[in-house]
Amino acid sequence: MTVIEIRPARPAELAAVARLRWRWVAEQDGLPAGGRDAFVRDFAAWAREHAETHRCLIAVRDGEVIGMAFLAVTARVPTPTAVSRAAGDVQSVYVVPEARDSGVGGRLIDATLALAAELGLERVTVHSSTRAIPAYERHGFARSPHLLQARLSEPGASPVRNNRSRTAPR
């Protein structure tokens, strides 16, 4: 039986995580312009620099990184009853296609939520693909009528402008 380990990524494994990120983008949008080696180097450096705010968990099978998930931790404004507050956002959950639908993604989600609980986070959000929504719901996520999103821009597009004026009409 093949054992799949879910655990925090080690610094030496960040290049493998970067290659997963490259593969994911290639699957969705085609091969990115630019060099993969440069991206892997830059991504690994970014992940090391942001290790406190972006915790990386990985799925490892037979010594190979086959999945990843990031928990982005954000400080929240203090309240009179809690000065130290934080929330989390699940980001970049990816499992290689040949390991999908085997529970690896769910295990990454569970490990990410366990890490969030360990860190004492108040809540965890996720911006999910349509395909993954049922998986997140099976692991405790629920749709929120209060969580809103404003798209400020699309890659390569002008920022969205609010056409409503705060002043009286002319």
Rank of each mutant, 00 (worst) to 15 (best):
W24L: 12
V25Y: 13
V25Q: 10
E27M: 15
E27Q: 12
Q28F: 15
Q28T: 15
G30R: 05
P32V: 03
P32R: 03
A33F: 08
R36W: 07
D37W: 08
D42P: 12
A47R: 07
R48F: 11
E49R: 07
A51M: 10
A51P: 07
A51V: 14
E52P: 13
E52A: 10
T53C: 11
T53D: 15
L57Y: 02
L57K: 00
I58N: 00
V60S: 06
V65M: 11
G67T: 10
A69T: 06
A69N: 05
L71D: 10
A72E: 15
V73M: 03
A75T: 06
A75G: 13
T81V: 13
T81Y: 11
T81R: 01
S84A: 12
A87L: 10
G88K: 02
G88D: 00
V90F: 00
Q91P: 01
Q91C: 12
S92G: 11
S92P: 05
V96R: 10
V96H: 09
P97Y: 04
A99V: 13
R100D: 01
S102E: 10
G103S: 04
G106H: 05
I109H: 14
I109R: 08
A111Y: 12
L113C: 02
A114G: 06
L115G: 01
L115E: 14
L115H: 11
A116L: 00
A117Y: 02
E122D: 03
V124I: 11
V124L: 13
T125R: 07
S128L: 09
S128T: 13
S129R: 03
T130H: 13
I133L: 06
Y136H: 04
Y136R: 03
E137C: 11
R138I: 14
A142G: 11
R143S: 14
H146F: 06
